[in-house]
Amino acid sequence: MDRLSLERRQVWIYLAAILGGLALGSLWPALVQGFEILLWPVLAVLLYTTFVQVPLLHIRDAFRDKRFVLAILLGNFVLIPLGVWLALQWLPDDPALRLGVLLVLLVPCTDWFMTFTQLGGGNTARAIAVTPLNLLAQLLLLPVYLSVFLPAADFGAALKTEEMLSAALALIGLPLVAAALTERWIESKPARAIWRERLGVWPVPLLALVVFLIAAEQVETVLEAGPVLLTVLPVFIGFLVVAALLARGLAGVLQLPVDTGRTLAFSLGTRNSFLVLPFALALPAGWETTVVVIVFQSLVELFGMVFYLWWLPRRLFKSPLGANA
């Protein structure tokens, strides 16, 4: 199965992986005890193969369309964080739940954002160009957001640990550096471009394996978190609606073309769940709900993207009369 076929079916692939993990963890709990050790290298390879698809060495290309860059930065790093903070006020006073919501909603996506942009008639070139800018900005700003939005006691207890720092270094920094070196190696000879295409097939099955391992290992937490997930479900659905409407407003104010407006909507609507998983997995005991909330949001988001593929080109960002969608 090629990359495009995998990406079109990824919603059902991830859902099957989660259900399979829950079944395995429920029926054979002793079998999944070592899954945590396996999870870390799989996640590291997932991050590497995903980062290879991001043009890390071409961040300057993002600034060619200044209005689009302004919309991306204003939407993803000012308006979305304000909206997330407002939504947080309606959630139960559960630090693990709130941290999960913050981690997963504050950082824009850098992988399937480009896929859905292409499928939804957006401007794929703009999506590719702005992705390294999104990645750099979120890595710099996420600690700032968490320190502002979380109470000092919760922030210190959950995040300022040696485990968190080592996880960030090993599972984000090293794959990021390796991907940048790979990109330089690929671009040194045109014939090597095939390697980016080959690596591009792996993020979907690797992410499916990651959520399978998490579901199997955290089956008790997942089952106990049922009421919690129902609590955050309206927040995640509301986020998708507000993000698209926000993109429509920004596109109108900044007079963005229709295809660029769609790209903006997919950027604001998709979140970087795989990037924040290392932080969540490194949390101390008692914070397992954070991981479950992040995985749950990614599943809700994928179903939301299926809706976006219908809603954006046919209703919110309709092509001008006579133009192709």
Rank of each mutant, 00 (worst) to 15 (best):
R9I: 01
I13P: 06
G21E: 05
S26V: 09
S26C: 08
A30F: 12
Q33M: 13
W40D: 03
P41K: 08
L46T: 00
F51R: 00
L56N: 05
I59Y: 04
I59N: 03
N76S: 15
A87V: 12
Q89H: 12
W90I: 03
L91D: 02
V101L: 13
V101D: 03
V107N: 03
G122P: 00
L136A: 14
L140F: 13
L140W: 04
L150N: 07
P151W: 11
A152P: 15
D154P: 11
A157L: 12
A158Q: 01
T161E: 08
L169D: 06
A170P: 02
L176F: 15
A178E: 06
T182I: 09
I194D: 09
W195F: 13
R196A: 09
R198S: 10
G200Y: 00
P205R: 15
L206Q: 11
L209D: 08
V211T: 04
A216I: 00
E220A: 15
T221F: 04
T221V: 13
L233Y: 10
P234N: 06
I237E: 04
I237G: 02
V242D: 01
L246M: 15
A247F: 08
A251V: 05
V253P: 03
P257W: 14
D259M: 13
D259P: 03
T263D: 04
L277F: 10
F279G: 03
L281M: 14
A282M: 06
A285Y: 14
V291Y: 01
V292R: 09
V292S: 07
Q297I: 02
L299K: 08
V300T: 04
E301Q: 07
L302P: 00
L309G: 05
L309C: 09
P313S: 06
L316F: 04
G322K: 02
